[in-house]
Amino acid sequence: MKLENMYETLRNIHGPQGKWWPGSEEEIIVSAVLTQNTNWKNVEKALENIKKDCKNNILHCLAKMSTQQISFLIKPAGFFNIKAQRLKNLLTWLKNYDFDLEKIKTKNIEEIRKELLSIKGIGKETADSIILYALELPIFVIDAYTKRLLNRLLGIKLKEYDQYRLLFETTYPKDVALYREFHGLIVEHAKMFCRTKPLCELCPIDSCRYKNAKD
């Protein structure tokens, strides 16, 4: 398999994923922080707590809360004190734009990304997730699953996050819907077959280098 065929191969196996990341733009921004070092079920519990307290305008509502109040609401997501502070830092940045995501979208992607990465606690994966899924701008999200699949399927192992990102962005057209679905397909495949201990005997990708190396 070549990287050029990876999207089509995964889509044929798992079917269309669509947007993949659930929730409104505001919920995605919050969940991008909450999902760090935890599973999605825990994120959902934390989001439910937030939505009970914040009926409308989640970002405005959270911005008015203390770090301690946020910490209590997001407790199910784990590392709640750290994540509460990260959320507060992110909310301070959003407040500069009056929480108007359309204002942020008028800037170019690199400028938005630079600002997000200057926020304490916001790393590249979180920043890119916000840009792609909440701001709906074309940037490819790289996570541990992506690195695993590239290594096992194609024998590609790079040093830097942005090397992986640019590899996808120079191979595939810059398209929000494509990047969203592709990222979703990678995660689905990694969870279903290409786990830490892979289920190679069940995986339908016969050209996998890792699988063939084990034969």
Rank of each mutant, 00 (worst) to 15 (best):
S129F: 07
I119M: 03
R86S: 05
H60T: 14
N89Q: 07
L135C: 11
D175K: 11
F168M: 13
F99I: 04
K157W: 05
A134N: 10
T126P: 00
V176D: 09
Q69L: 08
L116Q: 04
N108G: 00
A127C: 07
L150F: 12
F168H: 09
K95R: 12
I70E: 01
E188I: 12
I142R: 02
L178R: 10
S118H: 13
G123R: 07
Y164D: 04
R86T: 11
K83P: 01
I70W: 00
L166K: 14
N151W: 06
A127Q: 01
T171N: 09
G78R: 01
E102L: 15
K75V: 01
T67V: 15
I104M: 04
K147E: 13
E160M: 13
E125F: 04
L117V: 07
E111I: 13
R180H: 14
T106Y: 03
E181S: 11
K52Y: 12
I70N: 03
Y133E: 01
G155V: 02
T106G: 00
F193G: 00
I58Q: 07
H183M: 10
L137A: 11
A134L: 05
R113W: 08
C194R: 02
W93P: 02
L178G: 03
F79E: 00
L90G: 00
E102V: 12
L150C: 11
N108M: 05
D98R: 13
E102W: 03
H189K: 08
K114G: 06
A177N: 13
F72M: 12
I112T: 09
V176F: 08
S66W: 06
F193W: 13
E181K: 12
R86V: 06
Q163C: 02
G155C: 05
Q85H: 08
T146V: 14
K52F: 10
L73C: 04
Q85V: 15
L158W: 04
V176N: 10
E125A: 06
D128A: 01
D162F: 15
Y145A: 10
L137P: 09
D98L: 10
D175H: 06
F80I: 01
V176A: 07
E160D: 15
K83F: 04
K157F: 08
R165A: 15
H189R: 10
I142W: 06
S118F: 09
I122R: 00
E110T: 11
L117Q: 05
Y164R: 10
L132K: 06
H183T: 09
